[in-house]
């Protein structure tokens, strides 16, 4: 069954300090796609995957959505249930969620609308087939 909705972590709060793999420090609102790509290249354990949003349905829990992703070259189908305000990082677009107004209200993080077809940054462990 899909994982339970994620309680929102603190690091999405505007102004949070994020350390990239090369040690550089950036604010969460200033992160760019290249930051994730370069950090994954430096990391010996992690690999970046492109995860395309295929479906968005209302979740089983209140205030949650069920998002189906097609992950990586193998297009593995992965389904996650998250709160509507949970932000994903979309390649070339930045932070996006199913309810950007709520994300901005809670985190002061400017956010776009997450839509079917958006390609999100996700991670897998290197060496996982």
């Amino acid at each position: 069954s899909p994982s339970s909705p994620v309680v929102l972590p603190p690091f999405f709060m505007r102004g949070s300090i994020i350390q990239l793999a090369d040690g550089e420090l950036k604010r969460v609102e200033d992160l760019k796609t290249e930051d994730f790509i370069q950090s994954a290249e430096i990391s010996s354990e992690l690999k970046i995957d492109s995860s395309t949003v295929e479906r968005i349905d209302s979740g089983q829990s209140p205030n949650a959505v069920l998002i189906q992703f097609s992950v990586g070259e193998l297009k593995a189908q992965v389904c996650v249930e998250v709160l509507v305000e949970y932000p994903f990082f979309v390649f070339g677009q930045g932070w996006s969620s199913c309810c950007p107004d709520r994300t901005t209200q809670l985190f002061e993080l400017s956010c776009a609308k997450l839509c079917v077809g958006d390609v999100c940054v996700s991670l897998t462990l290197r060496g996982l087939r």
Binding site: S16, I18, Q19, L46, S51, L74, V78, V80, T124
Partner: peptide, 25 residues
């Protein structure tokens, strides 16, 4: 005199999801 305040620093990989095929179904 201002009390030193530690600011949390979060690693980059905590911001994006691990989407493993085993999560589906």
């Amino acid at each position: 005199n201002v009390e030193p305040r530690s600011v949390p620093v979060f690693p980059w990989h905590s911001l994006v999801p691990f989407l493993e095929p085993s999560q589906s179904g």
